[in-house]
Simulated scan of single mutants.
Amino acid sequence: MKKNKRQKVEEWLIRHEDFLTITALERKIGFSRGVLYKFLKGKRKLKTYEIKQIDRFVKDMIFNYLE
């Protein structure tokens, strides 16, 4: 079964949490401080627009690497 965007983003964040600098990622994407930290600790869900912003950021990062 194909994963939806929310599943892909949430799994990517959880899988790579150990080497991501969460505050730098929040700053780069333009989130308030603590949004991703609270998600990773299970204290809040990510909103749909946050999922879209993270998805766009990851895709841009990969696309820029491939250039």
Score class of each variant (00 low, 15 high):
M1C: 11
M1W: 10
K2R: 09
K2L: 08
K2M: 07
K3I: 12
N4W: 04
K5G: 02
K5H: 06
R6H: 07
Q7F: 11
Q7T: 15
Q7E: 15
V9T: 05
V9R: 01
E10Y: 03
E10G: 03
E11V: 01
E11H: 03
W12A: 13
W12F: 13
W12M: 08
L13N: 03
L13V: 07
I14H: 12
I14M: 14
R15P: 01
H16L: 08
D18R: 12
F19T: 12
L20D: 10
L20K: 06
T21F: 07
T21M: 09
T21I: 12
I22D: 03
A24M: 08
L25V: 11
E26T: 10
E26K: 05
I29W: 04
I29P: 00
I29M: 10
I29R: 05
S32M: 10
R33T: 11
R33F: 03
Y37K: 09
F39R: 01
F39E: 02
F39A: 04
K41T: 10
K41M: 05
K41G: 01
K41D: 09
K41S: 09
G42F: 05
G42T: 12
K43S: 00
K45M: 01
K45P: 00
L46W: 07
L46V: 07
L46C: 06
K47F: 04
K47T: 08
T48Y: 00
T48K: 05
T48N: 07
Y49M: 03
I51Y: 01
Q53F: 04
I54F: 02
I54E: 03
I54S: 02
I54T: 02
D55K: 08
D55Q: 13
D55H: 14
R56D: 14
F57N: 04
F57I: 06
K59G: 08
D60N: 13
D60Y: 06
D60M: 08
M61K: 05
M61G: 01
M61T: 12
I62D: 14
I62H: 12
I62R: 14
I62E: 15
F63G: 13
F63Q: 15
F63C: 11
F63I: 14
N64A: 10
N64W: 06
Y65K: 10
L66F: 10
L66A: 12
L66Q: 13
E67F: 06
E67W: 05
